[in-house]
Amino acid sequence: MTNVLVCVKRVPDPTGEVVLTPDGLRVDGRYAGYTTSAHEEAAVALAVQVAEPSGGTVTVLSVGSEDSLEQVRAGIAVGATDGVLVEADADLLGPADVAEAVAEAVRARSDAGTTYDLVLLGNDAADTGDFQVGVRLAYLLDRPVVAGVQTVTVDGDVATLHAKGPEGTEVYEVTLPAVVTVLEGGVSPKYPSVMGRMRAKKAEVERMTWSGTPGGSGREALTVPEAPPSQVTVLGEGPTAAPALVAVLRELKVVHS
């Protein structure tokens, strides 16, 4: 039986226009709306894929405000067993703070009788892109960690992980328990059914409070790069533009000479 914990974060929808808060320290999601990072959606799908055949459980955890319950319940709607909300002001937390909050929750659940063979996180969050929480969490829990993983299989107490590396696919075998950060692309995210949404709405979500003191991110400011300039070339008007159009299509190898 493989029990999996998946950590998710409430982030501004990355498909919308990027707008910063007045202090320039965060991405403002009030206009684009909020969602779960694509890497974390893949992590939830992987967790369900790993846990279900063995009769294990999948717990979705988020560190944040009451609003983060939306992301916890979204994970339950696509197959997670239960959820945990670690109540904190996410705007005050840096990656070290989040890792400590998650580690504290893992230990608290262990003391209550629930242990996790795998802890999955997104490779990075869509709003901050820190790439740090997974490694810091593994250090706090004294577990091995592999980053950039796209597929996971478990046989007994050994997990085989396929990760995306600079030279291609890398394969790792690690003894459980372990921490894994997930990169989207290896598994398709699951979409909730009507029954899944109803189950998630009624599901119990355990609430915890982190006992630590936020150290913050140390971030000074974010900037949004200017959009690249666009350029338009008019090939001509009417039939007289045909030769120029053909020349462009040949240059692009759409048509052959």
Rank of each mutant, 00 (worst) to 15 (best):
P214Q: 04
G156L: 10
V158D: 12
E104G: 15
T175Y: 11
G113Y: 07
G186L: 14
S211G: 12
G215L: 14
T128P: 15
G216F: 11
A178L: 11
V180C: 06
T233V: 06
A200G: 14
A103H: 03
Y116E: 03
P189D: 15
G168P: 08
L176F: 14
G129R: 01
R207M: 01
A244N: 02
R219I: 09
T115C: 14
A147Q: 15
S110D: 07
S217F: 13
L140A: 10
V246E: 08
V149G: 00
D155I: 06
S110I: 07
Y139K: 11
P189N: 12
V135Q: 07
P225V: 10
D130Y: 10
T175Q: 15
P228V: 04
T115Y: 12
L161F: 05
L140C: 03
G196S: 15
E184C: 06
L120W: 02
A147G: 14
V246W: 00
H162I: 13
V234A: 11
P225M: 05
L141Y: 11
G122T: 06
M208G: 03
A108N: 07
G236W: 01
T128Y: 06
P166G: 12
P189I: 01
V149M: 03
V234E: 10
G186N: 15
V133G: 03
M195C: 07
L161D: 01
H162R: 10
P239E: 14
Q150L: 09
L121V: 02
R219C: 09
M198L: 08
R207Q: 05
V106E: 00
P229N: 06
P192E: 12
K201R: 10
K202L: 14
V187H: 02
E167I: 11
E184Y: 08
A138N: 09
P214S: 06
V133Q: 03
E226S: 11
R219V: 11
T233K: 02
V246N: 01
A147R: 10
G148A: 03
K164D: 08
Q150V: 13
Q231N: 05
P189M: 04
S188I: 08
A221V: 14
L161W: 01
V154L: 05
A138D: 06
P166N: 12
R136M: 10
G134R: 02
V106T: 00
G122N: 05
A221T: 13
T175F: 09
L120Q: 01
V154W: 02
K202N: 13
V146T: 15
A241S: 04
K190N: 13
Q132W: 09
R143G: 15
A244R: 01
P214G: 05
V146A: 01
P225C: 12
T115D: 15
A200W: 01
R136L: 15
E184F: 10
G168K: 10
A200K: 03
V179D: 03
V145H: 14
V119E: 01
R197M: 14
L161T: 03
T213W: 09
L118V: 10
G113H: 10
R207H: 09
A242V: 13
Y116H: 07
E104P: 04
L161C: 04
L222D: 09
Y172S: 08
V187N: 07
G185W: 13
L245E: 04
Y116A: 00
G156A: 06
L118C: 05
P225T: 11
A242I: 14
T114S: 08
Y172C: 12
V135D: 08
P225E: 01
K202Y: 07
T223F: 13
A108T: 07
M208E: 05
E173Y: 09
M198A: 09
F131Y: 14
S230M: 12
Q231V: 09
